[in-house]
Every structure is written in structure tokens, then in C-alpha cells.
Simulated assay, not measured.
Amino acid sequence: MSLLAWLQRPGPMLTPAQLERLQRLPIPTPLSQRPLAEQRLVVLDLETSGLNPQRDQVLSIGAVVIEHGAIDLAQQYECTLQRADQRAGASTLIHGLAPSAIVAGREPAEALLDFLEFLGASPLLAFHAGFDRHMLSRALKQTLGLRLQHPFLDAAELAPLLCPQAELRRAGLDAWTGYFGLQVQQRHHASADALVTAELALILFSRARRQQLDSLHALDQRLQHWQRRQATPSL
């Protein structure tokens, strides 16, 4: 389905200016076979109102860009989304976003459009990407009537593939940052978590090149093969 046809489906009420911005968004590109050093990759982290993917909401988005083999600190995105009905709860102790900060956040449609324009056609990478992908997809569909089509890579899956000697098969971000001696400025803060995930990704890409995996497409293919082998019972 074309982007224009999707926009014409019944959905959220958007202003003409917002619809025009949606129509100008580039078409996401599939994972490329170009060398990793030539890629632009957006590393994403979300803070949410909880861990229920069907009920909870995206509260903040943090993202940083890996381009030309390095983290480009000039390309960063950080935004708190306005949620008028958000109340303090158990998750507030984790992400530290006070209800007053969330009420004062950016209008969700504008915030998500800004993020999509920042993202462009680039693929995404996150740690435990399945959750972030689902939450972002649901936010885009509910707020903009748009289906997320960007490829996603998961650093939590790539790390044990590329570094089996670490013996951290199902470890979290803290375990992997500790293993590589990375420093996290403020854990469970979207921008800080996105930045340390990008640092982890650069280490993983260096390991990948040593294993003759020098493209996002090659990494994804190797990961799928490895996951199939992991799922096959030993005889």
C-alpha cells in the first residue's frame, strides 16, 4: 500500500500541515549491503508508562545517530511527549519523569513527526528492540495513522552472537555495558540509554568486521541463521 493510500484511511484527526509533513517523509530503506562505516543508523531508546505493550504509552524518545563509523553527537533527538492523563506510578521511580514534566511535554503528533523527520529513511537499532518497536509502532498508528516500516536491529541479540565468549546469552544492557567497561551517565533516561547503546553498537560492529560481517544485511542474515540453530533441538 502506498503512503498516500495509507494516509487516506480513516484515522486520527491531523491538521493539513501535519498531513503534508507525513506525505514528505522518505520511504524507509531495507538493510543495506554497504560497509558498516558507510551506514547511517538511528539508535533509539524509549521511556514508557509501564511494560504492558497493549496498555502503556510512550513518554519520551531519545535517539542518536551512528554515521561514517562513529556517533555523531550533532545528530541527537530527545523529547518528552505530552500525556495529560499520566499519573505518578511505579514506573516514575524508574524513568524519573514527573507528571508535571509529562503534562508540559510536546503534543504527541508533533513530537512523533519531528522524530520521523529526524529518522528519515535510516534503519533503527535498540537494546531489546522488540519492545521499543512495538511501542513505537503503536504510538505511530494511534497518533498519526502510520505503520512503522523501518528495519530494526537488536543489540541484545547481536551481542551474544558476536561475543559468545562473554557467556551473557540473555543479559540486559547493564550486564553488557559492564562487560565492555562502558559508563552510563543516567540509566533509564532515554537519551543516555540511547547513547550507551550506540557505544555498544560500535564495539559490536568492530567485532562483526573481524568476523567478515561488514554490512547490516550480512549481520541480519547471520543473526537469523544463528537464531534458527539456537531454536533447533540438539540430537
Rank of each mutant, 00 (worst) to 15 (best):
P26R: 12
P26Y: 11
P26C: 13
I27F: 05
I27Q: 15
P28H: 08
T29M: 12
T29R: 14
P30V: 06
L31F: 09
L31M: 10
L31H: 06
L31T: 08
S32F: 01
Q33P: 01
Q33T: 12
R34E: 13
R34V: 03
R34P: 02
R34W: 01
R34S: 12
P35S: 02
P35T: 07
L36G: 02
E38H: 12
E38K: 10
R40P: 01
R40Y: 02
L41G: 04
L41H: 07
L41P: 03
L41E: 01
V42T: 11
V42A: 09
V42K: 00
V43L: 04
V43F: 03
L44C: 07
D45G: 03
D45A: 14
L46E: 05
T48G: 06
T48I: 02
G50M: 11
L51P: 01
L51A: 11
N52Q: 14
N52D: 15
P53K: 01
P53A: 04
Q54A: 13
Q54R: 15
D56I: 02
D56W: 05
D56E: 09
Q57A: 13
Q57C: 08
Q57Y: 11
V58I: 10
V58G: 02
V58H: 06
L59D: 07
S60H: 05
S60W: 01
S60D: 07
I61V: 15
I61N: 01
I61K: 01
I61D: 06
I61P: 04
G62Y: 07
G62S: 10
G62N: 07
G62I: 08
G62K: 03
G62P: 03
A63I: 07
A63P: 04
A63E: 08
A63T: 07
A63N: 09
V64C: 15
V64L: 11
V64K: 00
V64M: 06
V64I: 15
V65W: 01
V65Q: 09
I66E: 03
I66D: 02
I66C: 07
E67G: 04
G69R: 04
G69T: 10
A70N: 01
A70I: 03
I71N: 01
I71P: 02
I71D: 09
I71E: 08
D72F: 04
D72G: 00
D72V: 13
D72M: 03
D72E: 13
D72H: 10
L73F: 12
L73N: 00
A74L: 10
Q76E: 14
Q76M: 11
Y77C: 02
E78W: 10
C79S: 13
C79K: 10
